[in-house]
């Protein structure tokens, strides 16, 4: 089993990094928050141009077939750069379109013209107002509400398409992608906080020089670094359809969600008052981390799933 990304995978991550670095994602988030989705849709299509949304679309419909490892490394980059929109939901829902007889949408998903969302059983769909089609596992409807994340709204429209089969694998994929987004979010929060600790001075010295600050940052790094192998391990388990895939994904989701959230807490505290400021871009990542921690499996639900896997297996 290979645990290191190969040159092509690293090259793809670098390509996404370059594209997103040049894209001014915070402006895209703020536009979406203000009700203008055009910049988000434009960036979504550019991501599709480099092949991001083809990664969960079958080959016959313009995709590559499901590639969990490439999806995970894409989501880490997307999370790191703060890309808004129902990313995990689009990836997961695109694996269900065949089973619900909506294959006509698949080429559009791959080309970035079609955005999807997906609601878990008893849950909401992320950004149903943005999605061209919403799928639901289970019953229900719910009005549109604003999430803590300013770029995100949740709800469940009446015309959502009911999923009959394949729901477990798709929700697993959504959890895996969300875990990767959370890890990427945490990576950015840590990097930004380290940079701030280098430049912000107090008592005549950069605050990064104080041991208490260093330890706080080191703890976050440890949490992120320890979560990452679980994430890629789960991607490989899903790719190889291992029986442990479900609990592996749960373990990754718990670890990445908690690590991303820990990064947000540390970022907020170490930035001091500025971290609370709406105008400061970092706040966009801080709020995202909280949302991603609970989406597609709260840490405690994921831990229960891991324990159940242990007992069953």
């Amino acid at each position: 089993m290979r645990f290191l990304l190969d040159a092509e995978q690293r090259g793809f991550a670098a390509s996404l990094d370059a594209l997103l670095s040049a894209a001014d994602v915070p402006a895209v988030i703020r536009s979406r928050a203000a009700g203008d989705d055009a910049p988000l849709r434009a960036l979504w299509r550019r991501l599709a141009d480099v092949g991001v949304f083809a990664l969960a679309v079958p080959e016959t419909y313009g995709g590559t077939g499901l590639l969990p490892v490439e999806l995970v490394l894409s989501c880490v980059e997307l999370g790191r750069h703060g890309m808004p929109g129902p990313l995990a939901e689009t990836f997961a829902a695109s694996t269900l379109l065949e089973s619900v007889g909506q294959t006509a949408l698949l080429p559009g998903v791959a080309s970035g013209q079609v955005i999807l969302s997906l609601a878990a059983e008893g849950g909401y769909a992320a950004d149903p107002d943005l999605a061209d089609a919403v799928l639901r596992v289970g019953e229900g409807k719910a009005p549109l509400r604003q999430s803590l994340d300013p770029a995100r709204r949740v709800g469940l429209p009446e015309d959502a398409i009911a999923v009959e089969s394949g729901a477990e694998r798709a929700t697993g994929l959504a959890a895996l992608c969300t875990a990767a987004l959370a890890l990427g979010t945490g990576r950015h929060l840590l990097a930004a906080t380290v940079e701030y600790a280098r430049t912000r001075t107090q008592f005549g010295t950069p605050i990064g020089g104080f041991q208490a600050v260093k330890h706080r940052l080191a703890d976050v790094l440890l949490q992120l670094d320890f979560a990452e192998p679980l994430l890629y391990g789960a991607a490989v388990a899903l790719q190889d359809a291992l029986p442990s895939a479900g609990s592996d994904i749960a373990a990754a989701k718990a670890a990445c969600g908690e690590a991303g959230y820990a990064a947000a807490r540390a970022a907020l505290q170490l930035h001091g008052a500025i971290g609370y400021t709406d105008e400061f871009d970092l706040s966009l990542w801080i709020r995202r981390a909280r949302v991603l921690r609970n989406a597609w499996g709260t840490p405690s639900a994921c831990r229960r799933r891991v324990l159940a896997g242990r007992i069953d297996g």
Binding site: F12, D49, V52, T64
Partner: peptide, 15 residues
């Protein structure tokens, strides 16, 4: 004009 970013398919084809 902005140079394109290598796509996943482009990267795999380059091999």
């Amino acid at each position: 004009g902005e140079a394109r970013y290598p796509s996943f398919k482009g990267i795999m084809a380059a091999k």
